[in-house]
Amino acid sequence: MNICPRCGSQHTEQVAASPVAGVWTVHMCSTCIFTWRSTEPEHITNPDKYLPAFKVDQADIPKAAHVPPIPARRV
């Protein structure tokens, strides 16, 4: 759970645990903001088996289009 299944980043943290202890934990990647629960199937949680069509290349993240664009400041 320390490696992001989607972009491979090691910057991940646990953000929640089930109120009934030991059932599941929720994790988030601070690089691509992917979020997953420990009980989801391996094609969501395992970096080696994550859905290939939805893998994210960390190099593409800064190139993502801004929606909406940031406007110029009014003078």
């Binding site: 691509c32 903001i33 992917f34 979020t35 997953w36 629960r37 989801e40 859905l51 069509a53 939805f54």
Partner: peptide, 8 residues
């Protein structure tokens, strides 16, 4: 998660 490819 709603759909499998959702980012979160």
């Amino acid at each position: 998660r709603l759909n499998q490819g959702d980012g979160g």
